[in-house]
């Protein structure tokens, strides 16, 4: 599993676009929002957590279909499936690689982009923490969606349709925790609930992902 993780990270770095593309997309969405809603500082600072969360979600979505598609096309996936690695472990390693290349940089960059949206003091910390806790769930759910659509010729659009509804709870708890934290309310409860979702996803979804992969490799 470690070998697979290292290989995927190496590929993401060398192929280019692994780290950079998602971040650039994130930046563009955040820059576009003020053009859409107007430059009032109060409005922007109020909607900033929501914008950052939705933008992070879309940026994470962007690279999902590459998780398994590349390995499927060049035949590496069936070879991995017949290797001693359990498919569940492969799913987990793939999700982890996706998180390191998208979720983690997004979480780190989000507070910086918060400046553009006039975010207020305590919100920065909440933003970073909720993204760190929530993005692993996004990667894991996305990996499951990618496994469902891996053999399909035009799976990209379908993948979004399948995955986005599954993102709803993570998004709600994440944005809610930031909002409550920013208003000085109790943001820990939604944060813990979000952590619960992430833990549940990481514990259970690899099995569903492996089941979907087995079907698609037949």
């Amino acid at each position: 599993m470690k070998a697979l993780l290292i290989r995927d990270l190496r590929l993401a770095v060398r192929a280019g676009g692994g780290f950079g593309l998602g971040l650039a997309f994130f930046l563009i969405v955040v820059v576009l929002v003020p053009f859409g809603v107007g430059p009032e500082r109060e409005v922007l600072s109020r909607i900033a957590p929501g914008i950052l969360w939705v933008a992070a979600l879309l940026a994470a979505l962007l690279s999902l279909d590459r998780i398994f598609a590349l390995d499927f096309e060049d035949g590496a996936l069936p070879l991995l499936a017949t290797s001693p690695l359990p498919l569940e472990g492969i799913a987990l390693a793939k999700a982890l690689a996706h998180w390191i290349t998208t979720g983690l940089p997004l979480a780190v960059v989000a507070p910086v982009l918060g400046i553009l949206l006039n975010m207020e003091g305590p919100t920065y910390g909440w933003m970073l923490v909720t993204l760190l806790v929530g993005t692993p769930a996004l990667s894991m759910i996305g990996t499951f969606g990618a496994a469902l659509t891996v053999g399909l010729r035009r799976g990209g659009l379908l993948l979004s349709l399948l995955v986005l509804p599954l993102y709803v709870p993570t998004l709600i708890f994440g944005a809610e925790a930031v909002r409550r934290g920013a208003e000085g309310l109790d943001g820990v409860t939604p944060l813990l609930l979000q952590g619960g979702i992430t833990a549940g996803c990481v514990a259970l979804l690899p099995f569903a992902t492996a089941a979907a992969l087995r079907v698609n490799l037949r």
Partner: peptide, 24 residues
């Protein structure tokens, strides 16, 4: 097979969404 797996996972997330909505 794939839709069955999706249905199972979706059911869990539909339930989660419901409670998240009430929370929200």
């Amino acid at each position: 097979d794939l839709t069955s797996v999706l249905c199972m996972v979706g059911s869990v997330f539909a339930l989660l969404s419901r409670y998240a909505n009430h929370f929200w």
